[in-house]
Design a protein around this nucleic acid. Structure first.
Ligand SMILES: [Zn+2]
Ligand SMILES: [Zn+2]
Ligand SMILES: [Zn+2]
Ligand SMILES: [Zn+2]
Ligand SMILES: [Zn+2]
Ligand SMILES: [Zn+2]
Ligand SMILES: [Zn+2]
Ligand SMILES: [Zn+2]
Ligand SMILES: [Zn+2]
Ligand SMILES: [Zn+2]
Ligand SMILES: [Zn+2]
Ligand SMILES: [Zn+2]
Ligand SMILES: [Zn+2]
Ligand SMILES: [Zn+2]
Ligand SMILES: [Zn+2]
Ligand SMILES: [Zn+2]
Lengths: 261, 261
DNA sequence: CTTTCTCTGTTTTGTC
DNA sequence: GGACAAAACAGAGAAA
DNA sequence: CTTTCTCTGTTTTGTC
DNA sequence: GGACAAAACAGAGAAA
């Protein structure tokens, strides 16, 4: 009843506010946590490396190198320097037209030095991989079928899709919702299945005072029996006569006992 | 504390025991429930039917007819009689070697009469469809990969399957667990995905006194922040600086606001 | 609608 | 450039 | 392990 | 024999 209490929706109690920890300090929760691998190098330092093929050793340090990604940002640049090229700042003179890498939520850690082919600066300007596309089964972008950009349409059910890949999955009876990717035996059910991705639960329990709602008619049909106490399923095995409220429980009984199979 | 109370695990209160209802009476729960369609015929009675093609009317009644199924029981026989053939009991002289239909949990309702081709009794003896197989994507039988009947093996990951169809799905990166049927972009992840079908949760929260367990390392990583209060994600947009405890919330913030996209 | 938090398929990172 | 495993991400989505 | 109950992909049923 | 929608089934699986 104290209206000065700040809104607190968390279902967990919080640890005491640490009076010492600064923003920069990493809070280590427990010694049991798997520690991140300690980077044996930091950018700008020198490192002795071994070439895996020849076995010869070299002194090197961080230098820029290319990395290919699957996403629309095709080239990642990470600062490296050769010990004999420290005067040259490889951030200047960079290609201003290159695609930027995907925005990261956390800054990348310092990479450990490994034997790697050094990429010439002019080679960095020509970043290829423009043709690469996402490799996931489920939709990665533009999965909205109600947007104005409904460019791809299924001839069978007239559903619209934002990309050719999504329509292709749909035509193979695969749900293109991100994280779903289920394949079905019929196109009709693929449409019906979409209700699992909608939030509405249009069916209601008809029992007085019960507010339960459902997406599937059968779920409601069986739920109502918890109110009535009905046990409509009886094992047909002679001498058994066990009764069940839910069809699945009779099915399991028959499967486990071999009754009236 | 009354030890005469019977064990009651239901989470719902039961309706009062009906003193009138017999075993035969169907308990009708509510008037709002969709009533089953009233059968306008009962077996043995006469019915006036209209042939859909010719429009001519005939008096008929229930007679045996064939029905094809997808499952191992290929032919279903339902009692019908012609009005001029009532003396002949079509249960006698039936083919004793025919496959029985799948055992049903509930007796079938009386079928409504429709215009249907009458099947001769001798035709009933020759029930075909021996070659039909299950059409589902997900496993229908023998999905046990730890049984002795591990006949089909994936050459890539050495997983075993009970049927050729299951192995075929697996080789197309489709999970063959019944009700799953998900298709993935890599074979490696298909193996990793199987943990969602196992009941063990091998990862534990390391916080003193917390008993939460996890299947996925990342879920534990983010969960621990509810104890520490850590909010490691900060929007990089100039002047915004909003912080988040979970990476998904920063991602959504960037998607909705366009910040540092 | 909101915020808090979990699950999981794919992408990115670290290392060789 | 490759491979691979671990970490992180980016949604979907449940709960309040 | 058990029992209770919900969700959902496929099969069966009812009807034309 | 077909088609189609509604009902039912047969698991998986969450919860206690
Ligand atoms: Zn170096
Ligand atoms: Zn379609
Ligand atoms: Zn789906
Ligand atoms: Zn339906
Ligand atoms: Zn109810
Ligand atoms: Zn029994
Ligand atoms: Zn008839
Ligand atoms: Zn395999
Ligand atoms: Zn699966
Ligand atoms: Zn993993
Ligand atoms: Zn915890
Ligand atoms: Zn922001
Ligand atoms: Zn390389
Ligand atoms: Zn919700
Ligand atoms: Zn027919
Ligand atoms: Zn459980």
């Amino acid at each position: 009843m104290d209206d000065l209490e700040p809104a607190q929706r968390s279902k967990y109690p919080r640890v005491e506010e640490s009076t010492e920890a600064t923003d920069q300090e990493q809070v280590r929760v427990s010694e049991n946590l798997p520690k991140p691998p300690e980077p044996d190098v930091v950018p700008g330092n020198l490192y002795r490396t071994t070439d895996l093929a020849s076995g010869s050793r070299k002194d090197k340090c961080i230098i820029q190198y290319k990395r290919t990604y699957k996403n629309k940002s095709k080239v990642k640049l990470i600062q490296e320097e050769t010990p004999h090229d420290q005067g040259t700042d490889n951030l200047e003179g960079g290609p201003s037209t290159r695609l930027r890498p995907r925005k990261l939520n956390q800054p990348p850690k310092d990479p450990k030095h490994v034997t790697h082919k050094v990429v010439a600066k002019d080679e960095l300007k020509t970043s290829g991989n423009r043709g690469k596309s996402a490799s996931g089964i489920q939709a990665s972008a533009g999965s909205s079928s109600k947007k104005a950009e409904a460019k791809y349409s299924c001839e069978v059910c007239m559903m619209n899709f934002g990309s050719k890949k999504e329509l292709g999955l749909h035509e193979k009876n695969i749900c293109s919702v991100k994280g779903c990717g289920k394949k079905f035996a019929s196109h009709k059910y693929l449409i019906h299945h979409q209700k699992v991705h909608r939030e509405d639960r249009p069916l209601q329990c008809t029992w007085e005072g019960c507010t339960k709602t459902f997406k599937w008619a059968w779920a409601r049909t069986e739920h109502i029996r918890v109110h009535t106490g009905d046990r409509p399923y009886t094992c047909a095995e002679t001498g058994c006569g066990k009764t069940f409220r839910f069809v699945s429980d009779l099915s399991r009984h028959r499967r486990k006992t071999g009754h009236s199979g």
